[in-house]
Design a protein around this nucleic acid. Structure first.
Length: 815
RNA sequence: GGGCGAGUGAUGGAAUGGCAGACAUGCACGACUCAAAAUCGUGUGCCGUAAGGCAUGAGGGUUCGACUCCCUCCUCGCCCACCA
């Protein structure tokens, strides 16, 4: 017997699989399809990371098992190749991102192949390939056509260091997600995608998919659906009206002031009326200067500063301006405060300090009245002095004709009386789709002085990224493309007059929003993918990826899917049937792996020292798949030792099945089949591997192993450690590859074969075990157990008052 | 502040309400070896000579029986965060 040499056998089988095109998804097949998907990597300069490979191994196990179960499996791979790090590298070195991307993808491809993933390499895609991004641009044009892509001058998050506009999602604690610089606000014309138009469906359709519950919850929170009422308040002595949004219209009688966001349109309008207000407009503001100063200060504040202030609320009254409460016709002051957000609801609220904690704090600070209108009892004996807002349900008090009603009941009645409108609002905001960057898909529109925004005709797609000399955005924040005059200047496709190309590019989330469609038909030049092929493969059956993509990529791609579905271009309203998430792999000390900390583990090193099969097993054996877990260079030896043991078992094989130990091994094999089969589906890979280890330990104890038992075991091992499985398969003289074998089934009867061990308890405490024949009844089991010397002692001659018997499990005598 | 989740040996972790600590690492001792590595064997929660008792963050409850279910509290992690 040769010794186990992973280096040799792994290279050998990888080559063989590739030559045989073993993992190619079939175009035409009678087998049921199965689409397994992992998030395609961003090919960075550092190369693959053991975090990537954990997820890929998990779905590789699933994909391999599905093939053995008789499915036609699509398990594709590609490159999410546009993005900042490559561009930053280009800025530093002057090397074209295209060249760097080629180098990085070559490295990633080599690494992935060395681990033996069963990807269908013939479908490899690259988002920075013009043949690919032609269709990313094409989809953008469809958004434009439907009015869902629009340009707006909006305050954007501006990173002064990267010189780039950031989406809200890229701002973390008021700082740039990438470089950590303090984010400023800047007004800029930006392209947006109207994802909010789909907010309702993105929320509701979560009911139809099989995602981990925490993923659904996180998406729902992000979308932030909330139902409430829009109610109009009139400004005293004028015709001006303010719409407020509230989820607690039942508390309207307790509104003691009204607050506008500093950015609210009405504030600017009121500030314009310097002297004599035009007829019908609101009155003159007495403290104009202070208000202007307050607004200026708010604009300068970054979000991190607001947080640093400990959420201490600030505001300023609009002196001389009052609003009329439509419920009781009372006059209440109007304030401007930055705790009211301009983009949520109507950017204006009624403040009910007694029943909202934020309003309560604000009222205390500025000495505004607090009026309790919901009490836990009715009639309320006396209104208590509150030291915080009362936000629970109760009965209305001091609310005119509504007093005495339960607050939930009062909601609808009050909204009706004050002429309010029920409305659903969302926290979700439209997706800022412009980047002033080089390394992204050019947004395919042309600006013409006469015709305005003109889409690039579809026949002219793709709009190919031109070569530039400098990759850095201009100091005014324009994309470097703006400097390429020969590219920017173009004739208007409509009127033929001189016009200019859009120089903004798309965010790196664009290409990844539809890549799973392209895999079904990666070389199509006439459409994003052939409809028949889409119909065959879509939706993705199982998609695994990082939790960090839950609110970004996952939501964006669901949005694109829905949009394309509405255009009847893709077959299902949801792209992914099932979504799971893996836990991060942390450094040895439990910190996040990062280049700067120097604790990144490169899979190359592991493959070199231990072999790919060991790496695969270790990554799944580490711990529960969904949990973040620290890498341990000490424990990786375990899976390697396991494979060495498996290797050595070949010397113990026999064709003689009549030996006495065989029966135990056979029963254990049946249990192992069941355990591994079920655990893979539950993503409980660590316990599946432990079951394989238990089986091998038992084989070691046995003096020989029937061939048939061992071959079945190898089939179970194959998805986890495909190289050694195929090698041993060949050693056994089997002609075909192990990966084309059918997945074994198990026989419940064989699992339960022979005697069973009962736990014998007295008063709930374990006092012994006894082997009894299977299917024995309570009476017989009890009499057998009672005769055990130990049990006799514990019973002390007394007759149990009660006997609990769980067949096959335990018997408990209660005294 | 809100949401989600987790507290079990030296460590990673197992356990449909039914033998707590499977499996693995580490450690100790032993075998093999001139030696080391590898490998193999034995042991490894706490107290106790033993019989036995005590142990799954703390306290209580339900149950014949609780790591698991319920209540109160403590600690930690992640995500969101002035969302009306």
């Amino acid at each position: 017997m040769r010794s186990y040499d992973p280096k040799k056998i792994e290279a050998k089988w990888q080559k063989f699989w590739e030559r045989k095109k073993l993992y190619k998804a079939e175009e035409k097949s009678k087998k049921p399809k199965y689409y397994a998907l992992i998030e395609f990597p961003y090919p960075s300069g550092e190369g693959l990371h053991v975090g990537h490979t954990r997820s890929y191994t998990a779905l590789d196990v699933v994909a391999r098992k599905r093939r053995m179960e008789g499915h036609n499996v699509l398990y594709p791979i590609g490159w999410d190749a546009f993005g900042l790090p490559t561009e930053q590298h280009a800025i530093k070195t002057g090397i074209h991102p295209k060249i760097v991307t080629k180098r990085n993808t070559d490295n990633y491809r080599r690494q992935l192949k060395s681990i033996g993933f069963s990807f269908d390499w013939s479908r490899e895609i690259n988002t920075s390939d013009p043949k690919y991004y032609k269709w990313t641009q094409w989809i953008f044009l469809q958004f434009l056509k439907k009015g869902l892509a629009y340009k707006a001058k909006i305050p954007i998050n501006w990173c002064p260091k990267d010189k780039i506009g950031l989406a809200n999602e890229e701002v973390v604690d008021g700082r740039c997600e990438r470089c950590g610089a303090k984010v400023e606000k800047r007004e800029k014309e930006q392209w947006l995608l109207a994802i909010t138009k789909y907010a309702d469906r993105l929320d509701k359709d979560l009911d139809t998919v099989d995602y981990l519950e925490r993923i659904k919850v996180q998406q729902r929170n992000w979308i932030g659906r909330s139902e409430g009422a829009e109610i109009e308040f009139r400004i005293s002595k004028s015709e001006t009206r303010i719409k407020v949004f509230t989820t607690r219209p039942d508390t309207i009688f307790g509104a003691t002031y009204l607050v506008l966001a500093p950015e609210h349109k009405l504030v600017a309008e009121l500030l314009e009326n310097r002297k004599s207000p035009p007829a019908g407009r609101a009155g003159k503001i007495e403290n104009r200067k202070e208000i202007i100063r307050y607004i200026e200060r708010t604009k300068k504040k970054t979000e991190i500063e607001r947080l640093a202030e400990g959420k201490e609320k600030t505001g300023i009254p609009l002196k001389g301006v009052y609003a009329i409460n439509p419920a009781n016709k009372e006059r209440i002051p109007v304030w401007v405060a930055d705790y009211v957000l301009p983009h949520y609801g109507t950017g204006a609220i009624i403040a009910v300090p007694a029943h909202d904690q934020r309003d309560f704090e604000f009222a205390k600070k500025y000495n505004l009245p607090v009026m309790m209108v919901v009490c836990p009892y009715y009639p309320a004996p006396k209104c208590p002095v509150l030291d915080s807002a009362y936000t629970d349900d109760g009965y209305l008090v001091a609310s005119g004709k509504f007093s005495g009603l339960k607050n939930e009941t009062a909601k609808r009645k009050i909204v009706k009386t004050v002429g309010g409108k029920w409305k659903t609002v969302y926290k979700l905001r439209d997706w800022i789709f412009s980047r002033q960057r080089y390394w992204g898909e050019p947004i395919p529109v042309i600006h013409c002085a006469k015709c305005g925004v003109v889409p690039v005709p579809e026949k002219d797609l793709p709009v190919v990224l031109p070569d530039v000399k400098k990759y850095k955005p201009t100091s005014s924040g324009e994309s470097p493309l703006a400097a390429v005059k020969s590219w920017v200047n173009i004739k208007c496709p409509k009127c033929g007059r001189p016009a200019k190309r859009e120089t903004d590019t798309m965010p790196n989330w664009a290409g990844s929003s539809w890549y799973f469609f392209r895999y079904t038909d990666p070389r199509n030049e006439k459409a994003l993918a052939d409809k028949k092929k889409l119909k065959h493969w879509v939706p993705v059956d199982w998609y695994n990826g990082g939790m960090e993509h839950t609110t970004l990529h996952l939501l964006y791609s669901r949005f694109w899917n829905k949009f394309l579905y509405d255009l009847k271009l893709v077959p299902t309203p949801e792209p992914y049937k099932k979504r799971t998430s893996h836990g991060l792999i942390l450094g040895e000390s439990g910190e996040k792996m990062s280049k700067s900390k120097g604790n990144v583990v490169n899979p190359d090193t592991i493959v070199k020292t231990y072999g790919a099969d060991t790496l695969r097993l270790y990554e799944l054996f580490l711990g529960p798949f969904e949990q973040a877990i620290a890498w341990s260079s000490e424990s990786i030896i375990g899976p390697r030792r396991f494979l060495e043991k498996v290797w050595r078992l070949q010397s113990k094989l026999t064709t003689n099945n009549r030996q006495p130990t065989t029966k135990n091994l056979e029963a254990l094999l049946q249990r192992t089949i069941k355990k591994v089969t079920e655990d893979i589906e539950k993503m409980s890979f660590n316990t599946a591997i432990s079951a394989l280890m238990i089986f091998v330990n038992e084989c070691e104890r046995s003096s020989y192993i029937p061939r048939s038992v061992f071959t079945t075991f190898l089939v179970l091992l194959a998805p986890f450690a495909p190289h050694i499985a195929d090698e041993l398969w060949q050693v056994l003289g089997r002609a075909a590859l192990i990966h084309t074998e059918p997945w074994p089934s198990y026989d419940e009867k064989k699992i339960q074969s022979g005697a069973v061990t009962l736990i014998v308890q007295v008063d709930g405490k374990v006092r012994g075990t006894i082997d009894v024949p299977q299917g024995i009844n309570q009476e017989k089991a009890a009499s057998l157990a009672k005769r055990m010397p130990k049990i006799e002692k514990w019973l002390g001659g007394k007759e149990p008052s009660k006997t609990i018997y769980i067949p096959g499990r335990l018997i408990n005598f209660v005294l």
